[in-house]
Simulated scan of single mutants.
Amino acid sequence: MIHLITGGQKSGKSEYAESLILNKTNQPVYMATSRIWDDNHRKRIEAHKARRGSQWLNIEEEKFLSNHDVNGKIVLLDCITLWLNNFFFDNGEDDNKTIEQAKEELDKIFAKDCDWIIVSNELGLGGHPENQMAMRFNDIQGAINQYIAAKADIVTMLISGIPLEIKNTLK
């Protein structure tokens, strides 16, 4: 099962995803994808960890999600935007390489015998970026969100903390 949770920044995606997984298992797995780029960001990550508590198995992985054995688990992957950002900056100007590497890694994790709850940002809701790099990233993010949504069984969008079900093939 793949459940994509998308929405704008600070819309409540992570908290909603955490509540979903805790209703399904008492052994949740949290796969965090962010690089730490400054002290403020480190503090945000630590606050996320503290909010989750000790029952979570935390896996920190910047790019190669498929390297981890999560078979038989329910995994919260948070978040696609930060994960994709790692490929984007590592690949410089090669946007096609970023998309291909991301799709290849997604296909590997979706082949695992586990359930995925995936958090991603809907960047296009925030208006048109003023610089070329941000526009390129928005385009890549949109392509990857569409790729995941097409494979997902459930897609939920959060707006101001309120979940709106967009797709559910399990009903």
Results as ranks from 00 to 15, higher is better:
Asp113Gly: 02
Ile80Lys: 01
Leu20Arg: 08
Ser160Glu: 12
Asp38Val: 08
Ser66Leu: 08
Ile74Gly: 01
Asp90Gln: 11
Met157Arg: 10
Ser19Met: 07
Asn71Arg: 02
Trp37Pro: 02
Tyr147Asn: 01
Thr169Leu: 14
Asn58Ser: 02
Thr6Lys: 06
Trp37Glu: 06
His48Asn: 05
Ile162Leu: 15
Leu57Ile: 03
Leu4Met: 14
Lys10Gly: 09
Ile162Asn: 10
Ile5Tyr: 00
Ile159Met: 13
Ser160Arg: 13
Asn131Pro: 07
Asp38Phe: 03
Leu84Cys: 05
Ile117Gly: 00
Leu77Phe: 00
Asn96Leu: 14
Ser14Ile: 15
Ile5Val: 11
Asn58Arg: 10
Gly72His: 08
Asn86Leu: 10
Asn168Thr: 04
Val75Trp: 00
Thr33Glu: 02
Glu130Leu: 04
Phe87Lys: 01
Glu130Gln: 11
Glu130Asp: 12
Ser160Met: 14
Gly72Lys: 09
Ser120Asn: 15
Ala152Cys: 02
Cys114Lys: 05
Ile99Trp: 07
Leu82Met: 08
Thr81Gly: 08
Ile166Ser: 07
Leu158Ala: 06
Leu125Asn: 10
Thr156Phe: 04
Gly72Ala: 07
Ala143Lys: 15
Ile21Asp: 07
Thr156Glu: 12
Gly127Ile: 13
Glu18Tyr: 01
Gln9Asn: 14
His68Trp: 10
Asp90His: 08
Asn40Met: 06
Ile159His: 13
Gly8His: 06
Leu164Met: 13
Asp113Glu: 15
Leu106Lys: 07
Leu20Ala: 01
Arg51Ser: 02
Ala143Arg: 15
Val119Tyr: 04
Ile80Trp: 03
His41Arg: 11
Lys151Glu: 14
Ile36Val: 13
Phe64Thr: 04
Glu100Leu: 11
Ala17Glu: 07
Ala50Met: 10
Met31Asp: 04
Asn40Lys: 12
Asp107Thr: 10
Ile162Met: 12
Asp153Met: 12
Asn145Trp: 12
Gly72Phe: 15
Ile140Asn: 12
Leu20Ile: 04
Ile118Phe: 03
Val155Glu: 03
Val29Leu: 01
Gly53Tyr: 01
Ser120Pro: 14
Val119Met: 13
Phe110Thr: 08
Ile148Gly: 04
Ile117Thr: 07
Asp78Ala: 10
Asn138Ile: 06
Thr33Lys: 04
Gln132Glu: 13
Glu100Pro: 06
Ala102Gly: 07
Lys167Thr: 08
Lys151Ala: 14
Thr25Tyr: 02
Asp69Thr: 04
Asp90Ala: 11
Leu76Val: 07
Leu57Asp: 03
Ile118Arg: 04
Glu122His: 14
Glu105Tyr: 05
His3Ala: 02
Glu100Asn: 09
Glu60Ala: 02
Thr156Val: 09
Glu93Thr: 04
Thr156Leu: 09
Ser11Val: 05
Lys49Asn: 09
Lys103Asn: 04
Asp90Lys: 09
Ser120Thr: 05
Asp153Gln: 10
Cys114Ile: 00
Asp78Ser: 00
